[in-house]
Amino acid sequence: MTFLEIVEGPLWTLASSVFLIGAAWRIFGIIRLGRKKDISIPRASALLGAIKGQFLHFVPHGGFSFRTRYHLIAGYMFHLGLFGLLIYAAPHVLFLKENVVGFEWVALPRWGFILTAEIAFTGLILLWIRRISDPVMIQLSDADDHIGSWLTFLTMLTGCMALQESHDSLRAVHMLFVDIWLIYMPFSRLMHSVTFMFSRGYTGAFFGRRGVVP
């Protein structure tokens, strides 16, 4: 079995299993803690508050300046770029068709891929520079934050290197990083990609009852 066959075969199966089971366990682990029933008389709907909370925090409000604008712009560049690549990069469309969903969709043209990758890289690098240079972020950050950033960076970088698909070894290296990323994700803060919905939802519901969602 070649290295490529290992990373696309048994290691991929292992990684995606760890990812799915681990992520499901993390989500179940949060939900199982439950919350005490709030018996105060609500002024408005908790459910509507939870829904409003999901959307409200996509854009910070309250008239903040540099710190917020920097994170808002860099954060959206990275996340939108990453999702663009993940879903619309031609090799991903093919891989997902063959290994996950069974159908394909329109992929990005080569120039679109390059542009999207540049946006994503710029966003990620800007966020990481901020993490190592801003005193507040230095104080808050731990190893997990840095590992998550670097693992995502290397996964994206090896993906760009493998774009031509001229060498199996480049594709194999990319797949190796994808597998590592998938195994790391449920144990790490990368899970914020799921837990943000719970966080916004709980706060929205809590305050929604009070008739205000801050």
């Binding site: 801003d134 972020m137 104080q139 808050l140 803060r189 914020h192 837990t195 719970f198």
Partner: peptide
């Protein structure tokens, strides 16, 4: 738990 899991230490 969701708050502690979701915080990405962005410092905003």
């Amino acid at each position: 738990a969701s708050y502690l899991d979701a915080c990405v230490h962005c410092g905003q």
